[in-house]
Design a protein around this nucleic acid. Structure first.
Length: 564
RNA sequence: GGCGGCGUAGCUCAGACGGUAGAGCAGCGGAAUCAUAAUCCGCGGGUCGGGGGUUCAAGUCCCUCCGCCGCUACCA
């Protein structure tokens, strides 16, 4: 049995869960459910990312304490994610005692290892607000093209990149005051010292924990390419402290009021969340995070935060006596109808909006699965396509199988399956080929080629539908002498349906649950999966899914526009 | 500006190691009527963004151009 710990990136406490984040949560959740269904020990943890300037400012604007704000946001995030069947084993917060402790320990160990540098740096400072200004909070004219109202890091007009201090006529976004330069002592993670280690670690191949004979790359090809950019030169030190006012953890053993940068304690939040789970579940924290841990550790992330997880984080772990991630899985962004999600276009769809629209969570999960591969490409949610895929695949093909034969089984055989669970014509024509799919399907799931897995499952559903057309049980039914054949055909089709339900369970847990109720079996686990036995009795069939209407999907966008 | 990614049938996308272009949906033509206008069989449809190169052979490797997108470390 494998021991696996996996994480999704931490949702930030200053924003709502949207369909883009759900892409990641669903991708991770499918993998977690798959591993569990295969009988492995698997823990899926996540947490709210609670610290940083934006949270502090928003709390101020709302007139509430930061603690109250993040508690509320965490509740909303958890509610939204739960509505999509994201089954965390634990969902913590980076603003927790455990994380405070682990972050401080991390910092101290890094310092003891000689990896912390201190330097005076000069930054823009808002004299009215009395705070240093992150680049994002300074606007001014682009030093290259002169475009007005540009942010302090890059120009939207000409694409130029510069330092905030280079902006002409800069103003603070908060007060409108002209920022002044002021220097302050900052702490840095000395990344350059780990250049050789990172170049090795990032590009290295590892033994396949999934049992494959060949070694596999630690990172996806595209991800490795991206990292080559940083790794090809000298690595710069990473600024990991912020001056007050800031919402976060104090820098340990520092007399001035300085805070750990949110991105320092955010990944440590993975550890803290798991630590809380351990307290509940009896696992040993060190088994998973100790330097010589034999457990597997995976981070699912968006491609935008790759360097945090593949550069800073490994460096932090290595120099603090911790284990390193087994692999890091990056995915692309979500676009809606071919375009970047946009509030003004109404395509910035929140999880809540979707849930309230009444569209089934499994529909989105299935659609994502049908499009997700192991790459880093963006995924497009095309609403028309979305409706067609759900109706065509899940309703028309998959659920249709149960719908086609259940009445015959119920009316003619009292819901009982025939005696040939492991032999006979129906078995060899329908059941055996689906059993034989197991290994290649498992490989697809394991390597996150969900789209390939979904194609295989649907091809199998096609074959059952084809089998039913060929056998025409509705014709057999009129001939009393063909009663045994009728029984066999319907039983085989339903056994096939049951097996496919198990294959689909990681993707569509609600559907699998409902199907299991109809089949009167437990949630079909992949480990030890076998055809429903002779004489097994199924329940009365009620529609497991409803067809989706185009209007429902379109309303996702319209509804957003009306309140934009 | 630098670096990276993408560009394959009307649509959404597959295509490890280079070897005569694939799926689903849509369209067209049949069949069937058990099933949620669900199902099955068959058909048409692509200069694989343009151009050049390597090779007996390139969507697949190299160069170049065009288009779209992303990243560029103190936004998270």
């Amino acid at each position: 049995m494998r021991r696996i710990l996996l994480t999704s990136a931490l949702p930030y406490a200053n924003g709502d869960i949207h369909l883009g984040y759900l892409l990641e949560a669903v991708q991770t959740d499918i993998w977690a459910r798959f591993q569990k269904s295969r009988g492995h020990e698997c823990h899926y943890v996540c947490a709210d990312d609670a610290h940083g300037t934006p949270v502090m400012l928003r709390a101020e604007a709302e007139g509430v304490s930061a603690e109250d704000l993040i508690a509320r946001m965490r509740g909303e995030h958890l509610r939204d994610l739960s509505a999509f069947g994201i089954a965390f084993d634990h969902y913590g917060s980076t603003h927790s005692p455990e994380n405070r402790e682990l972050s401080a320990e991390m910092f101290r160990k890094l310092r003891a290892a000689g990896r912390i540098a201190e330097r005076e740096i000069e930054q823009l400072f808002d004299p009215e607000r009395g705070m240093f200004l992150p680049d994002r909070y300074v606007r001014g004219e682009c030093p290259r093209c002169g475009a007005a109202g540009q942010f302090g890091d890059s120009c939207e007009k000409c694409g130029g990149v510069y330092a905030a201090a280079e902006l002409k006529n800069p103003v603070s976004v908060f007060s409108g005051a002209a920022p002044v330069r002021r220097s302050s002592r900052h702490y840095f993670l000395r990344l350059a010292a780990d250049g050789d280690f990172l170049r090795e670690w990032v590009f290295e191949n590892i033994a396949d924990p999934g049992g494959g004979e060949k070694t596999i790359p630690r990172l996806q090809k595209e991800a490795a390419n991206k990292l080559r950019e940083w790794l090809s030169g000298e690595l710069r030190d990473w600024d990991i402290s912020r001056d007050a006012p800031y919402f976060g953890f104090r820098v340990p053993d520092c007399e001035e009021e300085k805070y750990l940068y949110v991105w320092l304690d955010a990944p440590v939040g993975y550890m803290a969340s798991f630590m809380q789970l351990c307290a509940r579940g009896g696992m040993s924290f060190e088994d998973f995070w100790g330097e010589n841990s034999a457990a597997e550790l995976y981070h699912f992330i968006g491609k935008d935060i790759l360097y945090f997880h593949a550069l800073f984080w490994p460096a932090m772990l290595k120099n603090s006596g911790r284990r390193l991630p087994t692999r890091v899985f990056a995915h692309g962004f979500l676009t809606v109808n071919g375009e970047k999600m946009s509030k003004s276009r109404g395509t910035f769809i929140t999880a809540r909006r979707y849930a309230e629209s009444g569209l089934p969570a499994d529909a989105l999960r299935y659609y994502y699965a049908a499009k997700l591969g192991d790459g880093i490409d963006d995924i497009d949610l095309n609403l028309g396509d979305f409706v067609l895929k759900y109706n065509g695949d899940l309703v028309g093909k998959f659920v249709n199988i149960a719908s086609r034969v259940s009445r015959f089984l119920l009316e003619d055989f009292g819901g009982e399956l025939d005696g040939e669970a492991q032999s006979g014509e129906g078995f060899s024509a329908v059941v055996a080929p689906i059993l034989a799919l197991s290994d290649s399907l498992a490989r697809d799931y394991e390597s996150r080629r969900y789209h390939s897995a979904m194609r295989s499952v649907m091809r199998a559903a096609d074959s059952i539908n084809g089998y039913l057309d060929e056998k025409a049980p509705w014709v057999m039914r009129k001939d009393k002498t063909k009663r045994a054949q009728l029984h066999q055909t319907c039983s085989a089709a339903l056994r096939g349906f049951h097996l496919l339900t198990a294959y689909l369970l990681p993707v569509t847990p609600q559907l699998a649950d409902d199907a299991a109720k109809f089949l009167q079996c437990g949630p079909p686990q992949w480990a030890g999966l076998s055809p429903l036995p002779a004489g097994h009795r199924v329940g009365e069939y009620r529609h497991l899914l409803r067809r989706m209407q185009n209007e429902n999907a379109r309303a996702l966008i319209q509804a957003e526009e009306s309140c934009a």
